[in-house]
Design a protein around this nucleic acid. Structure first.
Lengths: 107, 107
DNA sequence: AATGTTTATCGTAATATTGCAATAAAGAGA
DNA sequence: TCTCTTTATTGCAATATTACGATAAACATT
């Protein structure tokens, strides 16, 4: 025991949980907000902006990338990270639908 | 080490991460979707609907409740769980703002 | 009072996450 | 080539999460 029983839930539920998990840490929220604030694509400087060691930041970036929330690509000299519009769109739609369905009911 | 450095991030970032964390598990996504689908408020029956032991479901419900995503109240005989419209509204707004800011930039 | 039903909590094992120092890898510039 | 800078990876310790059996608590129904 101890491992999540992913196979017991739908693909959609697992996908949503995976994306939400990627954002379920203040450092990763901060990274996304920073990418959004500065340029939406940024080459370098993320580490200096966070109160964490370089190795830790790199790990958080990898998690965001694995979940598809950000994209990273080698641009000549540095590595550039961008927000993934598609993933953020999915999240927006999900909560949008959730809320509109909720409002149509009455408690 | 090992513990999240919450104090290094803003209250807003921590709050958002906390709500997202509450939803960052397929079982908890399934619970929210079930509450939405059936009635938005439901008294009993959640356990039977999930492929997990009763103790585990109870634990997941507690996490959702602690994060403010759902509300639970003793209604006479059973315990009724409802979605918290306010929390879901916050999530919707967050991703809505995120996406609109993103679209106004160009990569 | 005894029984059944439903939900919560405790205790515990398995697994995952968080964080960092150390080190590697890869390219830029001297 | 040697060094500097930047990002990734490895290895490890501390902590958190996930899951469940056992048990408790609260209230029905008999």
């Amino acid at each position: 025991m101890g491992a999540t029983k992913s196979d017991q839930f739908s693909d959609q539920q697992n996908e949503m949980a995976m994306m939400l998990k990627a954002l379920a840490h203040p450092a990763r929220v901060a990274i996304v907000e920073y990418l959004l604030k500065v340029e939406s694509c940024i080459c370098g400087g993320i580490v200096d902006h966070l109160p964490l060691a370089q190795a830790t930041v790199s790990q958080h970036l990898r998690e965001l990338k694995n979940a598809g929330v950000i994209q990273g690509s080698v641009e000549g000299t540095a590595i550039c990270y961008c927000l993934n519009e598609k993933a953020l769109g999915k999240l927006k739609n999900y909560f949008g639908k959730l809320e509109s369905k909720l409002k149509s009911k009455c408690c």
